[in-house]
Structures are given as C-alpha cells and as structure tokens.
Design a protein around this nucleic acid. Structure first.
Lengths: 227, 227, 227, 227
DNA sequence: CATGAATGAGGGTTCATTCAT
DNA sequence: AATGAATGAACCCTCATTCAT
C-alpha cells in the first residue's frame, strides 16, 4: 500500500507518477522495470519514491489493484439495466465488457495479463488481486445456469468454469491480433466492441460455440440444424 | 547449442547440470534465473559453465529444445496405431498426450509454457523452438474437420483454433489442481492420464463440450438429448 | 559525458576521482585499466562510479577532452602577441608549446598519445577528440608556407606534414630522456621549455634542421655556410 | 623462450602454430589476443600450448624476436654489394629496406610496431627486442657522417638520430596510407619499393629533405637553387 | 517533505593457466 | 607428448534501497 504521504500529493503529481509507472510495467517484464527509470521519467527524487511506496513490489501491487478497480468501474458502468439476463447473455456481456476494458485501458490490462501468466517473484499476491477482476464468478454463473436450466446438466461445472475463465482472460489479446488493431486504434479509445461489426460477429460465433457446447437448448441448433 | 565439451562430460555430470538448470528455469522467469545459482547448485566452476554453453541464452534454448524433443518422443510413443482418426478423436488424443507430457515432465512443460507467455529477450528464437510443440496445427485441423464434415461449417476456423490452442496450453495446469495431484504423484511418473478414471471423465466432459459446440453431428446429442 | 551527479560532487571528490583515473589511463592501455581498481583507489563505491559516468568509455573520453581543453588553454596562454609569425617561427612555437604541455601535464599528454597510437574499441570517437590537439594543421601550414615563399616548392606537402606530425607527437618524449628530466622535475611544474637553455638549444637545432631541409631561403645557410 | 618440446615438433605443426599466432597478434592488441582462440585455430590442445610456451608473454616475445630475425635476414639479403655507401645513400637504403620489410612481412611488422607504441604489459622486454631491428644504429651513422664530412657539423647527433629513428619506424605506415596500398597489394608480396615509381619519388623527396636539412653539401641545393 | 548521492551485493561473462588422464 | 576439462579471480555493469542533508 502506498503511504499516506503519497495520497497527500497533488492530483497532478500523483497522476504523473502513476502514469509513468503504468507505462513502464505495461511494456516490460516486472524484473526489467527499473525504479530509476520511473523516477527519472516522473521527474521526482529517488528518495521521494521511497516515501510514497514501500518499494517496487508495493508500487506494482498498487497498479494492479488500480487496474482491477478501473475494471470494476467500467463493468458497473456498462452493466445493462435489465439485471435478469439469461446465463449466456450474461456471459456474453461479461466477456465483451472484459474485452472492452482491455481496449480502453490497454496498459492496465497488460499489467494484469502479465500478472496472470506469472513472470513475477510473488505470484500469489498478484493472483489474489487479479482474481478480483471477476474471474472467480464463473463457477457460480454455471452452477446458477444449471439450476435455471440454461446450462446442460451433464456439464462439469468446474471444468466449464476453467474454460470460460481462460477464454475470458485471453480473448482480448486474440481479438486485437485477429482484427489487426493497431496501437493507434486502441489508444484513441474510439474502438467500441459493442459497436464494431467485426467484433460483434466474432463474439456471436464464440457465444454460439459455447452455447452449443454447454447450453441445454442452444439457439444455434435451431438456427442451423433445422435448415 | 552446447559445446562439444559439454557432450564429452560424463552422463552423471551432464544430467546433474541439466537437472539443476531445468529446475531453475521451470521455477523462475528467465531474467530471474541466475547462472551463479545454477553453477553453485550443480557444483561446477563458473568458468566450466561457459565451456559447456555459450551463455545463459544457449543453455535456455537447449532446455527448450530438450523439452520439445521429449514431447515429440512421448507423442510418437503414444500415437494410436489407427492413423485415420476422426477430427474430435484426434483432438482428444492430442490434448491428452499434451497433458500426459505435462504430467510426466512437469518442469520441461513449465519451461515451454513460460517461453510461450513470458517476455524473453529473444522471442523469435524461442518461438521457433516451441512451435514444434504442435500448437500451430489447430487451424489446419479445424479446416480439415469442416471439409470432412466433422466440424460444423458455421464455426469460425481461426477463432475455434484460438480456443483449442488456449485449452491445449492450459488444461494440464487445470487438471493438476482439479485432481489435487501432488508433486509426488507427478514426479513418480506413475500418473497416466490414459488410465486414470477421473482424468478420463474430465477429458470426456471437455470433448463432449467441444464437440457439442463445434461438431456437425455431435455424439453428445444422442447420448443426452435422446433420453 | 559525465552525469550531472558527477558535477554536483564536491571539488575535492571530483578531483580525487579524476586524479586516480588520469593516473590509471596514463599508465596502462585502455583495456588494462580496471574500473574496480579506480574505484578502490578513489575510495568510492562501484555503484557510485556508474552514477558519475556512463561507463569506462565515458570516463575515458572525458579525460581525453579534459586533456584537449587543458592543452588549448595552455596554448592560448602561450600564444605570442604577434599573430603574423613566419612559417618556421610558427612551427617552432607550436612544437615548443606542445612539448611544454607534455612536460606540464605529462599524464594528460600520455593519455592523448595513447589515444593516437593505441588500438581502442571506439577509434572514431577518440580520434575526433584528439584531432582538436592540432596535429591536422600541418598540411595547411606547409601549403601556406609554400604560397608565402617560406617553404621550398619542391617539398612534397603531405610527406613533410607527416614528418612534422611525427616529430610533434614524439619530441616531448625525446626531450625528457635527452635532458634526463626526472619525474620530480616534471611534476613540480617548474620546468619551462621556453626558459631552459638546453631545451632551447635543442629546439634551435631541430628547427635549423627542418628549415634547412624544407625552407626556401634557410637562415642556417647564412649562419653556417657563409663562414 | 619456447621449450625444447616446441622445437621438436614437425616443421608443419610449428609453422601452423606460429602462423596463427602471428595473425592474431598482428590484428589485435596484446590484451585482446586470446590463447583459446590461438589453440582453436591452430588445432592443438590447450595443454599442448603450455608445453610449448611458458605462457602468452613467452609466445609473444618469441614472435617479436622471429620478426627481428626475419628483418635482419631481409636486410642482409638486400644489402648492396658496394659496402662503402655515402651516409645519405646508406640512410636511404636503410629506410627503404625497412619499408620493404613492412610490405613484405606486414604482420610481423605490425607486431613490432605495436611493441613500439607500447600497448603491452612489459614494454621494456619488448623494446629490448625491437631495438635489434637496427634503430640503434642511427647515432653511429650520423657520427660517422660528420667525420666523413657528409653531415653538417652543427647538427646535434643525438637529436638527428631521434629524428631518423622516428621516421624509420613510421615511414612504412605512412607509405601504405599515402599510396593507398590495399591489403591485397601487400599480401601478394608483389609490391617492391625499390621498383615502384611513386614510392621512389617519395623516398627521393624525403631524402632530399633530410639531406638538405642535415647534409654538409646537399645535392638538392645544386638541383634546385642553382636554377 | 524533498532531495539525490551512496551503497554493495549481485548480474553475466572472459581468460590464462593448471592438472589429471 | 598430448589432451581438454577444470578453475576462479577478475572483468564491466545494474539495481533496489538507504540516509544524511
């Protein structure tokens, strides 16, 4: 946790430091990130840094939790008014929201992604934080889905949750390369997965696949096999 | 490539060095692995190490290729006699073999996995080696599956390949935690995914899900919906 | 270029470091000079050194430019008020000033000399600096001398420049051994080539030789042959 | 001194080792030359090397003395039958012979040159050897020249000897760059300073300059000033 | 609260030389 | 006599962290 001193800083200075740190941790492996470089770019004294944070790890975990908070904020903002979505609609929305986060805050997302694939000297503490990103929900979601008769009962809940969790964490990456999105596309913040037709088609295809695979009465069968 | 000197060493010494190195690279990011630590644990002189390998990178790439060779050997050994498997049978076999490798050589598998997700100072050379792991096959497999009318034509080939690739890379991890396999279970090398009933059930469930999701005429429908 | 940090050091500390470094580079080839030895003798931490300089090369080039600056300062201080010297008077003055520099700052001179003859990992950067030493002027000087009818027209400009350059670079060395100057004589800084009678006689003899060899109407002929 | 063992080797092997060593020491500073590289290129065992030579320094000094011997041999071979040359004719011949050596055995010459400019951890031992190259003769030559009334009596013997020594050591280098001789020109061994017209003209110009500078009754004056 | 110089353990790598076979 | 594996001190350099001002 950053020190009290840090939170007493002016908004501008705090933002400058965090901005630089985010940039560094998003673009280099944890071990390659240099505190010296951060303080240089942020134009603060070396000593000051250690008055704001306990050290490198403290800063890093702070960024991670900032990212999670940002994600939560975005998710809540995007949450459809109708709370009672069907399982697969909810799932689709979750994945889309997650991808939207990745496109809207690519650097924070990259930091979280890095934490996920554990190139870090303290994987456990990092995982604890990133799981707040929502990935832990999938078990419940599927269990509920079975109860509500949306999900086929023969599906192994935990295994399906693993599958969804994995897709959830990696689909953003895939989308970027699949749609050949450039850094420019993303950084402008103009790309909106909910609007872009190519993205929507991919989501539809993904969800059809998942629903056909796990759903009790998948729409896709009606669409396709009835013909 | 290790030097001739290295290959002239006694079997015992070579194994000791490789063993220590595998252990280090399996448990730490590339940048964290210390040559000093390796030579200390392997009880050889610093200078000797550099008579065996060109440097850290050389050692690392050697371990990677060892892993790939080991995987290939295992895969060839496990390959079913019947060469003309159906798409989903082949897929199931591939995933099982890959998981078997992960359980039988968990440290080599971890090194390969790291190479895939980690940021390494020489990504191209690492990727070249890990591509021999087979993950690039999925696009072809699905395309063929559609032609052979095993896979439903509405499936987006590339997206489905992404899904399979992801599962392929991570399922081993999941299996270990799901079946609560201990280091002992694994290191003894006694665990065989093709024999273990719990593992087989999970594979069945996974494949049912995938086949129901992507297949043209999924068996699962007969099993389940006909009832 | 040394870092800002270095220039913020106390005069004493900076002088101590530079002093040690000058001593090392004056007495050993570039490759033999050890940063470890320098920091040990200067009683600073290894890490501190790298806060002051980018590395060994940076330190070395700094010393080189210090030497050139020192030489320029001395030369300007010694420059005769009468700007329009004849060719051979100018030449004599140049050589004397250069030798004076060598006697007054023998270690800096040695570093520059080494840069000239030694094989250094970055020859271009070193040459760029040492060229400020003035050795490149000889071609012009002789060409001008021919135009002004001081130098005989049959003299090959480039060859003569080579000769002068060589003498210019080595005469200081020779003077020291010829006059049996001790380290004490030199380090006290009391020796002045412009004052010392033995030195003046040698310079006269050298210049007579050169002027008789290259001059159009050499004085020496009048002095000597007329008798 | 190389060991007896070394001299018991077959001609071929000895030549191979020396050839490689010459190549290495000619092209790299002493400190950069690696024994490992030499034994690799010469295809001998590391241990063998230390049975032939006491170490790096021993090998190096051996090469230096080989070079001096070679130079002496060439000089004796080139020596004109008429032993009673005039001073400046003898001088010219010496310099030409020295340059010819440099062109005929460029690698040996480079090794000697390096020793001269002292990039070496033991300059004294090296200088002792290189002085056998003939440079010590100049004092006598000029003293004799004065006695024979070839050299002007006002010339400072020692200073003039310094001048000639310096030219003698460096003129080869200069000639190569002046005539833009390529490595090919030299290595073919076809270039002969006694035959090449450009070279002869430069020698003539140099000698005219020296003779006009030091001579008692220089030819050049007759050539030129009489006009 | 801010500063930035100081620290020193540790990083990967090179090398001439030794010594057991 | 020949071999080549073993050695370990020394190389340059990086870094997160501390601490006096």
């Amino acid at each position: 946790m950053p020190t009290e001193t840090f939170f007493n800083l002016t908004e501008e200075k705090r933002a400058r430091i965090i901005g630089v740190a985010v940039d560094e941790f998003a673009n280099k492996p944890y071990l390659s990130v240099s505190i010296s470089e951060i303080v240089r770019r942020a134009a603060i004294a070396k000593g000051s840094f250690y008055q704001y944070f306990e050290g490198k790890k403290d800063l890093y975990l702070h960024l991670l939790s900032l990212g999670m908070a940002q994600k939560l904020a975005l998710v809540n903002q995007l949450k459809p008014s109708n709370n009672s979505l069907k399982t697969f609609d909810y799932l689709r929305w979750m994945i889309q929201a997650s991808v939207q986060f990745e496109l809207q805050y690519p650097r924070l997302a990259r930091i979280a992604y890095r934490a996920f694939v554990e190139e870090i000297p303290f994987p456990d503490e990092a995982t604890e934080l990133t799981n707040q990103g929502g990935a832990y929900l999938f078990n419940d979601l599927i269990a509920q889905g079975i109860l509500h008769e949306d999900v086929a009962p023969w599906v192994d809940t935990d295994m399906a949750a693993f599958l969804l969790r994995t897709v959830y964490k990696q689909f953003g990456h895939y989308l970027v390369s699949r749609l050949k999105l450039t850094a420019a596309d993303i950084s402008e913040g103009t790309f909106d997965v909910f609007e872009n037709e190519d993205a929507q088609q991919l989501f539809r295809n993904l969800m059809d696949l998942l629903e056909a695979g796990m759903g009790r009465d998948p729409e896709i069968r009606n669409h396709y096999f009835s013909k």
